[in-house]
Design a protein around this nucleic acid. Sequence first.
DNA 1: CGCCGATTTGATCGTGGTCAACAATAGTGG
DNA 2: CCACTATTGTTGACCACGATCAAATCGGCG
Lengths: 232, 232
Amino acid sequence: MSYCDSCLVRNRAICAALDDSEIQSLNAIGRTRTLEAGEPLIWEGDDSLLVANVIEGVLKLSSGTADGREQIVGVVFPSDFIGRPFGNTTPHSVTALTEAKVCVFSRTDFDGFASRHPALEHKLLQRTLTELDRTRSWMLLLARKTAEEKIATFLLDMSKRLAPTGCETPEERPLVEFDLPFSRQQVADVLGLTIETVSRQFTRLKKEGILDLPSRRTVIIRDRTALEDLAG
Amino acid sequence: MSYCDSCLVRNRAICAALDDSEIQSLNAIGRTRTLEAGEPLIWEGDDSLLVANVIEGVLKLSSGTADGREQIVGVVFPSDFIGRPFGNTTPHSVTALTEAKVCVFSRTDFDGFASRHPALEHKLLQRTLTELDRTRSWMLLLARKTAEEKIATFLLDMSKRLAPTGCETPEERPLVEFDLPFSRQQVADVLGLTIETVSRQFTRLKKEGILDLPSRRTVIIRDRTALEDLAG
DNA sequence: CGCCGATTTGATCGTGGTCAACAATAGTGG
DNA sequence: CCACTATTGTTGACCACGATCAAATCGGCG
């Protein structure tokens, strides 16, 4: 009996490329692991020993300078793939933002398995290409957008990516109300801002009636159109 | 007889995954194209009709906001892959920075070919993973580094990536003198700065004796260690 | 209730952007 | 070959956005 049978992301993660017997063999080399909010899974610069699929929760990929400046370079959600296959070092840290469940593999085991299953590699390639597109778009935001535009873009992005994946794609059903899996500091680290600037922008959007912020992490989008205009 | 036989990047591009007979079939669906400096190959948001390998020259991937702010989100060199396979739209423009030669394929032809040649997809996956790592590192630069650090990092990166690829990897033999394939405006567009700031930083590095700038695009690194210290 | 970390708010500062003038270079045609 | 122009790059003065420093407030938890 395979754990994968009951896996929440069985049909969305790269595993969807595999049939039942193949899933069995993949299951044999993987194991699930639960992480608490704030718990690290991979450290920047470490040997690349692990890869994983996200089953539940949200994790950040981050990178920092020698003198302590930090930047979140990616955020991963259920069904996303984590880690650096076919390479010796992981260039970014991976840390859970919420309580999370991941399905981890030894990198070398996974590399071998992937090499024997082209359909899996194909899924991984598609996923990686999509992630590269998203990352490049984020570069435009980091380099050229104002603080206000950054915040607006970020909130719209989160309202889409946090939406439960049902029959329709998330893009079609963005959330109106959601809890950010980020502290103010982490929002700042995603957008290349400081915590104070993030805070000021949030309160401004609230004052203008575009948002409601009933608790520290809860966001309600009152006027999506206005937010889209601000996103630039 | 295959054109690929004489291809300069035959053993470095993803084509290296293919044997002679496979190269023949790939050759049958591709053609080479020459681009002049400044000539566009793909427009942002267009249907993804083309993919390509870079044979000679340097090209930029760029993205812009509605109101005209531009950001260069990637720079590609000989043997690099261009375009968005397995997807309907190319999210970024591709434009030649120098005179360039590329080997172009219809995206659908390429998709089909790749699906039948897992070794090719594997190479493409590796390349995409590496590019994603590089792009994420660049996010840290865009979001957190000062203008001086950006310029220093950029020049060091170029001194490595413009180095001719011989037996040793480029990383081991960075150039001391090279011609930038970028105008000042384009350097600004890579680093998320303005042309004036770029110009000021260049003259400052020259005054401090770290660089020589004998002509508009020529850079000579006089003190690499100092530059590395500035890169942060 | 009282403590501690997270967040908000306020005051001030500095980097890099903006606007403007000027200089150097490349390109063009007589 | 040189004048003339167009383009690109440099330099200067000033400004604004977001950073920094500092203090107050909120909220969760014992």
